[in-house]
């Protein structure tokens, strides 16, 4: 019997073109999955809803990946990179689900381009077409800001995915059920670090207390229901985020109490040009993030390597 993995160089030297990176013809993460639209669901609503949750994961994944080689120590470097990778995986599935539900949502590519639909959505949509929360856009800041943001985001996403596991769309349901297991680890990681920073040194506590109001400015946005979210919930495929506020608040209060930190009282960040992230209205942080994330793909729309 031959060994498929004799040497890591075999994959580089061989004919295998399936290695996972932009421009390689890696395969559809939903290959063979039945993507029929469930009864009572509108394809465009389902697709936009998947883009919202997929874009949250994609943008936040890219942001967290910027900690790679910059974290305070190797263990946290790896933890944040793993968290980013989990979210990237969720983003791939959600963008692929959006593309299957409504192919017209996928940007047109030049003829002969090998770019699959999920990549086209990730790298060839302009900023206003992104439906992510502004909550995930800001620069990472220091480690305390990163932990505070990850705590709030993973608490919110875990509550959301737990409910989404009952979606009438079997694909979304499966993606959510898988995501629950992953995001549970993210919340645990952030929660433990939050308590550690609060009870660590005066400097770590000072930084954490400075971080919390920065993150909390966008807190209300998580629970502001967009019409597409309301429709998706009414159709049985999605979750109304307004219904998550109580549970998310209770978990966050539990962490804050353990840490001995007060819930911040800060004014909520208002809409941008009359809209929110779910409407495609974003902060300037997203344009810089997308410029970095999309530049290589856009420079080589037919690229293969």
């Amino acid at each position: 019997m031959t060994d498929d993995h004799d040497s890591v160089y075999d994959g580089l030297l061989g004919e295998d073109d399936s290695h996972w990176a932009f421009g390689t013809s890696f395969e559809d993460p939903l290959a063979g999955v039945d993507t029929t639209i469930p009864d009572g669901a509108d394809p465009a609503t389902l697709a936009t809803y998947c883009l919202m949750l997929g874009d949250d994961a994609l943008v936040y994944s890219h942001r967290l990946s910027q900690w790679a080689s910059n974290a305070p120590d190797l263990e946290d470097d790896i933890a944040l990179a793993n968290t980013a990778l989990d979210l990237l995986g969720q983003a791939r599935l959600l963008l692929a689900r959006a593309a299957a539900a409504d192919p017209s949502a996928v940007p047109a590519m030049p003829e002969g381009s090998p770019v699959p639909a999920e990549d086209s959505l990730a790298f060839f949509r302009d900023e206003p077409a992104f439906r992510n929360l502004r909550f995930v856009e800001p620069e990472n800041g220091d480690f305390a800001v990163t932990i505070a943001r990850l705590l709030v985001f993973s608490t919110y996403r875990l509550a959301l995915l737990e409910r989404l596991a009952s979606s009438s769309d079997p694909v979304l349901s499966a993606i959510a059920a898988k995501g629950v297991k992953e995001v549970a680890y993210h919340r645990t990681y952030a929660g433990r670090w939050f308590v550690t920073l609060a009870q660590g040194t005066p400097e770590s506590r000072r930084r954490l207390e400075a971080a919390l109001p920065l993150v909390w400015r966008h807190h209300d946005e998580l629970f502001a229901t967009h019409p597409v979210e309301a429709d998706a919930a009414a159709q049985g495929v999605g979750v109304d985020p307004a219904g998550l506020a109580g549970e998310v608040g209770a978990v966050l209060d539990q962490v804050l109490a353990t840490a001995g930190v007060e819930r911040p009282e800060v004014p909520s960040a208002g809409p941008v040009a009359g809209g929110r992230g779910r409407d495609g209205r974003h902060t300037e942080h997203l344009s810089r993030l997308l410029a970095e994330m999309q530049s290589v793909a856009r420079a080589h729309p037919r690229g293969q390597w």
Partner: peptide, 12 residues
């Protein structure tokens, strides 16, 4: 895992 980068290699 959702982001398991080994999936494509397994398929191949």
């Amino acid at each position: 895992y959702s982001g398991c980068p080994a999936m494509a290699t397994m398929r191949d």
